[in-house]
C-alpha cells in the first residue's frame, strides 16, 4: 500500500466536506480496514489586540514541503501498521470555519490509528515549511506561529 514517490499534498483553497466525505466513501472497497481516524484542521477566528482573524492565507516551499510530507508518510508506515494514509493541505486563502488540513489514516485495528494520527499531525506542524498569514477583518495581517 506504500507509495514511494512524493505526492502533491496541496490543494488550492479550502478542503470541502464533499471531498472529505468522498475520501471516506472510497475506502469502502478496502475491506481489511477496521478503523479510520481523521484529523481536520479548521481556521479559527482568533482575536488578537481587538482584531478578529477572517482568513489564513497559506504559502509553502512546495518542493521541500512535499518531500517532508513524503518523509512523514514513510516513517508513519514504518512505525505503525497502517493500511493507508492521506494528507491534504490548503494553499491560498482559507476562511474561518473552513478546513485547511485533512489527515486520514486507516488500519485493521483501532489502537494504531489514534497513535499514528497524532504522530503525523505533530510532525506536519513541526517539519513542513508551510507559512500561514492571518488576515484580519480590516485587511491588516500578521504571520501565524504554531503553538
Amino acid at each position: 500500500m506504500q507509495n514511494k514517490k512524493p505526492k502533491n499534498v496541496f490543494q488550492q483553497g479550502a478542503i470541502s466536506s464533499e471531498f472529505i466525505g468522498n475520501s471516506i466513501y472510497k475506502h469502502q472497497t478496502k475491506t481489511s480496514i477496521g478503523a479510520h481516524n481523521i484529523f481536520l484542521g479548521q481556521v479559527r477566528a482568533d482575536e488578537i489586540d481587538g482584531k478578529t482573524v477572517a482568513a489564513i492565507e497559506y504559502t509553502a516551499y512546495e518542493a521541500m514541503a512535499n518531500q517532508k510530507f513524503h518523509e512523514i508518510r514513510e516513517s508513519a508506515f514504518e512505525k505503525f501498521d497502517l493500511t493507508c494514509m492521506h494528507i491534504y493541505h490548503s494553499l491560498g486563502a482559507v476562511n474561518v470555519g473552513e478546513i485547511c488540513l485533512f489527515v486520514f489514516v486507516s488500519s485493521p485495528r483501532r489502537n494504531v490509528v489514534f497513535e499514528a494520527l497524532e504522530f503525523i499531525v505533530e510532525a506536519i506542524k513541526a517539519d513542513v515549511p508551510v507559512f500561514g498569514k492571518e488576515i484580519f477583518e480590516d485587511e491588516s495581517h500578521q504571520w501565524k506561529v504554531n503553538s
Binding site: G41, Y61, M64, L101, V121, K125, P129, F131, N146
Partner: peptide, 24 residues
C-alpha cells in the same frame, strides 16, 4: 531543500530562508 546550520558549506544551487513553520 534540507535544513542546514550556519557553519555548513555552501554546495547547493538553491538556498531558502524559511520563517517559522505554521502549517495546519
Amino acid at each position: 531543500q534540507e535544513l542546514v546550520i550556519n557553519t555548513a558549506e555552501i554546495t547547493g544551487a538553491e538556498i531558502a530562508l524559511l520563517p517559522p513553520f505554521s502549517g495546519g
